[in-house]
Design a protein around this nucleic acid. Sequence first.
DNA 1: CCTCAATTGAAAACCGTTTTCAACTTAAAG
DNA 2: CTTTAAGTTGAAAACGGTTTTCAATTGAGG
Lengths: 145, 145
Amino acid sequence: MGKVKTKNKFNDFLLTQGLKSTNQRELILEEFLCAGSHLSTEELYLRLRRKNPRIGYATVHRTLKLFAECGIAEQRHFGDGQARYEASDHDEHHDHLICVACGKIVEFEDPRIEELQVEVAGGHGFTIERHRLELYGCCSDCCQG
Amino acid sequence: MGKVKTKNKFNDFLLTQGLKSTNQRELILEEFLCAGSHLSTEELYLRLRRKNPRIGYATVHRTLKLFAECGIAEQRHFGDGQARYEASDHDEHHDHLICVACGKIVEFEDPRIEELQVEVAGGHGFTIERHRLELYGCCSDCCQG
DNA sequence: CCTCAATTGAAAACCGTTTTCAACTTAAAG
DNA sequence: CTTTAAGTTGAAAACGGTTTTCAATTGAGG
């Protein structure tokens, strides 16, 4: 989803929910979209402060929750104890490769794995709603090259 | 691994590390082994208190960490914000199915998925060290039967 | 403009986890 | 069986990320 489309979606969301469009929300969305994905609240907050020192952590936190609520962002946890947010391409699911050395996060998608998941779950009487697959290892920059 | 073998392993661990065998540690290990797996620290602590009200949360916490360190338990996070521990069958890996309705946790293993994971990771230049696969959905007790 | 509800930021509360510290155990030495 | 040194315990405090509170501010419709 393009930047403009995402911003429109957020504005629509605000309107339909009776929420207000504010300067902070615009700044946060802009920074969220142009900064790399998978930023933590803290990281995004620090980036924003560089440009606008008057912005508060609580506002960043609340705004990220709004993003998630309206479907333009998704919250993730990669085991380092803090929540991270990634821009959501909506209905296009992907999983993650995480380098344990440098922290790099790569997204991937594999329909064959998804298919097997459904099969395995079915075998146990489960209907899958969502899943989480994270592969932790070493990327080529860190461990081979 | 049987109960006795696990207890021996823990005692060996204590010896080789210069740690002491204490009444609390025995109680906690016994309860950990006979209570169902995937208990949180809090849950195990509450169970232990019923039998021995003088036991402290900190001790349960520290002892579970020891279990993990010595390889008889593994810490897991299933997204509800608290750490859970499961008895470890060592080198036999498995993943989890979690019922979003009743919280039931089922373990499974599928070599085909593992194989694909290695393949996909390799395609991105990664060498997998470990992974996490959790399927969240509805079990047959909750959503169908 | 005015008004009122929504929003903001600083600070406090929260919640699971981890550490501190003085009292207490353990195990090995005497 | 002491004694002793080191490890352990539990209550309480500290921690760290998250979430809420609240008084002051801002946005948008009347």
